[in-house]
Nucleic acid binder design. Structure first.
Lengths: 198, 198
DNA sequence: CACCTTTTGTACCGAGCGGTAGGATGGCCG
DNA sequence: CGGCCATCCTACCGCTCGGTACAAAAGGTG
């Protein structure tokens, strides 16, 4: 894929994807115009199309990278030894990420486009699939915990995973509207009580 | 405001607002084109502009009506005698409303437009203000509960209100992606454990 | 240094957007 | 029944959208 002849590129693909992420993140898929994207990415339109093919494909690539990098720390939280520790780490690192000062507030998976015009429905589906993958990872971890006797009796791993994921998505909505880290962590405190019930 | 002379209107304002709500709800503010709106509302463009002034103002009116009618049952849940009953009713009726078959899945307050292009930022603010009002009503109810000794010791009413609201918003995100009532109610089951902790 | 290949920049395309002008329409009132 | 006047409808406005044609530019290769 990397050619040796011809005029060399003046930009790095992953760098411009990260810059595109900021625009999609802040304005959503439909709210992110090509002018805003190319301006933020520092490349011009034909370069964008030669490299990524279309706005939709650019978004797919952008979101894939976001999912693999920015969301990795939240997924890493699942490696904690107990279910409680895993959930706490998941919710706390998520809350921090949603309000990190060096990036837009909220989460690209949620802000990217919950609702789209009919012709952009695939965009919503891409995002929903990403969220579902995270929830599925949570569920797997909690199913293991259940088999290890590491969950309160009567607690369904699937429902618990959905609960944790839903709360995190709700925090994303709050963060987009200006909630602070402390606001979200206080909500996490309340949530964690659910796991202490015997 | 209601004139007696001239050709009478062939539509009812509230009826067409309800029809507009469906379009905004399903496609978001920016994804809802005027063609889709007028077609669903059963009126034509100049009638829309003569009545509502602009797309933005139409949305404001639509959302106000949605907030006053559809969200009223959730707010009514707060009248229950205990904090636990109020929260349970709030979350359960919300979950039902998010997945009611006779309307689009999810919640207009969330799907309407979390992220917009810069010139439509006011739309996001309208929605955020609506959600904040609901959270504030929750907080007031829970503050009363705290003063009545009706909350577990050490439970902060404000944090609890934020937790409940965030969970409900997360359920809206899930519903938009196709979650069923049962899916959401199972998540509510988990959440309610948080309130039983002593 | 001339060639080949790929990228870059400018300038443009048709389509759809939100919004509007102006004449045809049709119930009320004198 | 004739004039009034707000509403309805067709057709259109300027603008921005996502996407592209084409030629100038810039490295590697003989």
């Amino acid at each position: 894929m990397t050619t040796t002849t011809g005029r060399p590129r003046t930009f790095d693909e992953e760098t411009v994807l990260d810059r595109a992420a900021v625009v999609f993140w802040r304005h959503g898929y439909e709210g992110a115009s090509l002018s805003a994207l190319t301006s933020a990415m520092g490349i011009n339109r034909p370069s964008l199309y030669a490299t990524f093919g279309s706005k939709r494909e650019l978004f797919r690539r952008t979101f894939a990278r976001y999912h693999d990098t920015k969301l990795a720390t939240a997924r890493a939280a699942l490696d904690r030894p107990t279910a409680y520790a895993a959930i706490e780490a998941f919710l706390r690192t998520s809350a921090d990420g949603l309000t990190a000062g060096d990036q837009p507030p909220g989460c690209l998976s949620v802000q990217g486009g919950l609702a789209c015009s009919p012709e952009n429905a695939p965009v919503s589906e891409i995002l929903a699939a990403g969220r579902a993958a995270t929830e599925s990872a949570l569920e797997q971890r909690l199913t293991r915990a259940a088999s290890e006797g590491d969950l309160p009796p009567g607690m369904d791993p699937r429902s618990l995973a959905r609960f944790v994921m839903a709360l995190s998505e709700g925090h994303a909505v709050h963060a987009a509207a200006g909630a602070t880290t402390e606001d979200l962590q206080a909500s996490v405190d309340v949530a964690l009580r659910a796991l202490l019930t015997r």
